[in-house]
Design a protein around this nucleic acid. Sequence first.
RNA 1: GGCGCGAUAGCUCAGUCGGUUAGAGCACACGAUUCAUAAUCGUGAGGUCGAGGGUUCAAGUCUCUCUCGCGCUACCA
Length: 721
Amino acid sequence: MAKKYLITSALPYANGALHLGHLAGAYLPADIYARFMRSMGKDVVWVCGSDEHGAAITIRAKKEGISPREIIDKYHALNSDAFAKLGISFDIYHRTSEPIHHQTSQEFFLKLHEMGDEFEERLVEQYYDEEYQQFLADRYIIGTCPTCGHTEAFGDQCENCGSALSPTELINPRSTMSGKTPVLRPTKHWYFKLDKHGPWLREWIEKGILDGQQHHDAGAWKNHVLGQCLSWLDEGLQPRAITRDLDWGIPVPLPEGAGKVLYVWFDAPIGYISATRQWAEDQGKNWEEYWKGPGVELVHFIGKDNIVFHCIIFPAMLKAHGDYALPVNVPANQFLNFEGQKFSKSRGWGIEQHEYLEAFKDFPNKEDALRYALIRNLPENRDADFKWDDFVDYHDKELADNLGNFINRVVTLSHKYFDGQVPACSVNLQEKLAEVTTLTQALTEDIQRYNFKAACQKVMEISSYGNTYLQDVSPWTIYKTDPDSPVIVECMYLCLQVVGILGVVSHPFIPFTSPRILTLLGQEPVKNGDWQSMLNKLATGEALVSSGQAIAEATVLFPKIADRRDNSRQEIVDRQKQKLAAVLAAEAAKAKDEPKTEAPATVQVEPVKPESKMEIQYDDFAKIDLRAGTILSAERVPKAGKLLQLSVDMGSEVRTIVSGIAEHFDPAELPGKQVIVVANLAPRKLRGIESNGMILSAEDADGKLRLASPAVPVANGSVVK
RNA sequence: GGCGCGAUAGCUCAGUCGGUUAGAGCACACGAUUCAUAAUCGUGAGGUCGAGGGUUCAAGUCUCUCUCGCGCUACCA
């Protein structure tokens, strides 16, 4: 049986829109690979879909007063639509809320469960809020500490004496949700014994050996992927809980599993399997041929945040289950930044896929322009940075000047010299196209090795070769004295072959332009197998574009952005740059504590909507002794990344306070600053230093802290109320 | 703090097993050219390979220490 190629891309969480960084991470590279493999005539299926379970969706639904279903439907449609418009050619974009996925996940769970030794059950007594009808996480329970009698101890720890607790040890426990006394209910959870899979995982990852056989070339995996996996294996694997007490998700398919669902990380990767099943059903195929047996090559495309799931946890699940193929590679990409900084929805930094499509709707080739700029700058081995100036450069200098202009020259000259027909010519193509053939083969190998950036550049090298060749021969010079020269015929014939190659090799990268190139040559768009037949023809010297073929009229493939007669495209790009400048200006103004000077209308500063806490009485508030104090000194706590040790002048005394703010403040700038201190907070040892109190600060939408202090300095020790 | 990955020309990046003078594109300078979208082609200049030690006949590449960036992880009252 012919080999089957199974490609997956990380399932996007259906709780938000995807931005360009996501696109560059796991979808665009996979699209290149999938398109390439199909055009090599391989039997490929590329699956993806929305991940629609998990607590984040239920919490958000509760906050917004809508159902989880409304959220997942909205974002599934939004992301699915944006992908389709950008030419992301999934064979199926499925969703984990579909019955077939629930069924697949439950079957998977049951199989492992029946094997007996893959799961362990842990019976836990867990508090249950009867009013809200749910089990409570440890930190949602407060009560009296059995050790010291402190009345506000959390379910996991007492802040007064520092002792570690479990919720059941608390005296007079109460739920932070309803305020009422929760009842203790036994709850069972299932753990996947990941630890027992450590030894074979190490051999598989380090050497590519599985069950004593060479499974893949370990040297072909990226350094950062191998490094992180081995680091995990070195630290030792632990059993992982795979169930939770939640009502949104896939029910645990056991009688004693009522009210429990599979934990998202367990169900999400199984989504690859259920998507394949659905696809096979739709296509009248057998899904198992794509997942099982030695003739299957599985490749996962993901971002670097997902490495351990796809290289350790999911393979262990598959291996435990048996039958399933393990990935031959996991070419995880790193992260893409945006104009030097991380994408941040709350800051308005970056652009989402659907936003791009909307903002660039009048931009010709907006899909390929974006794809190309992202591909040229893929974070294949280290973080990369997307800049609008680069976007313009790549578009104008490579797509327009190099590729588009070459094709335009060839087509125009063909019309001029041969009335728009491919001339008859009997040169030895094998010999004359040797250099381009070598380039094309190297390009092919680059894609096979997941070097998409390099492959993309080779498209330009082929085009550049064409430009150079055309310039060297300069048929326009010969034409002046000898319009019937065979040199012109040969030159144009060869150039047309090069355009034919470009039409094919551009397909995985710029799939909207590739058919336009081929149409110029009177050819059909790339279909399955065309890349392979191109390679065959190049090897044997057969023409890609035959004599006599009619050539269409030249059209400008890529109207340049920097165009002195038409600045409409430049304006579209400029608006994006202005948007970013406005974000920076607004933030700079804010930082200077200046009143917000006319922030342009394009910036929408979303007000922070805090998760509201339960109502308290005045007495609760009155318990807190807030006082003003001045920081005398600040220094980093050794071996702690986030802690600062502060001395604070409280008027009558100087206190030592340890605070987790080291990532937000330079210790040197703190002395002299007046702050508000929770003065009667129970002492607590942090990293061996006793902390007496806590300083207050406000958290910005972007997560940055700002010290809370009296607007005008007051005497140290002054009461704040 | 621990672990992992990275740092190469002004910018973006290649550099395979340690082996000749460290490469490409863009930008820059000069020249050629006019079929073409102010496009194309050629030549040139541009490097302490993050810093410092070590191994070696030979180090961008191996090793150790350090600096910076990113991620994972611990700490966050």
